[in-house]
Amino acid sequence: MTNTPLVLVGILILAVGTFSLRFAGPVMRSRFELPERAQQLLAAAAIVLLTALVATSALTDGHGPAGVARPAGVLVGGVLAWRKAPFVLVVVAAAATAAGLRLLGVP
């Protein structure tokens, strides 16, 4: 049985903590003006994080590998995006590839 007050406390701390993490950037940036070079570094850092998120969510599941269907789907989507295919096609092709492979019994 779940301990309601403790779950509530956990959720509220997570909410306040998550908001603080999100709010930290805008607050810090409004306190002082950043030079061009620093802004460029921050933009690159965000891209580095997003790229790592792509790689880990495409290739891993928990602490292990993600199987075959999901990486294959992301690869198809990635190639289409690289060839400048429409965004809708990229998303649908990635999902359809993974779903199709699973239908065929590929993990």
């Binding site: 997003l50 790229t51 792509v54 590839t97 993974a98």
Partner: peptide, 27 residues
């Protein structure tokens, strides 16, 4: 949602969106 391949769709969404920025060599 894995049945619909949505687990592959989300990384593909982010990949498509960061790809233009990745054309910059340093990034």
């Amino acid at each position: 949602t894995d049945v619909f391949g949505l687990d592959a769709a989300f990384p593909a969404v982010l990949l498509a969106l960061v790809l233009p920025a990745l054309r910059d060599r340093a990034t």
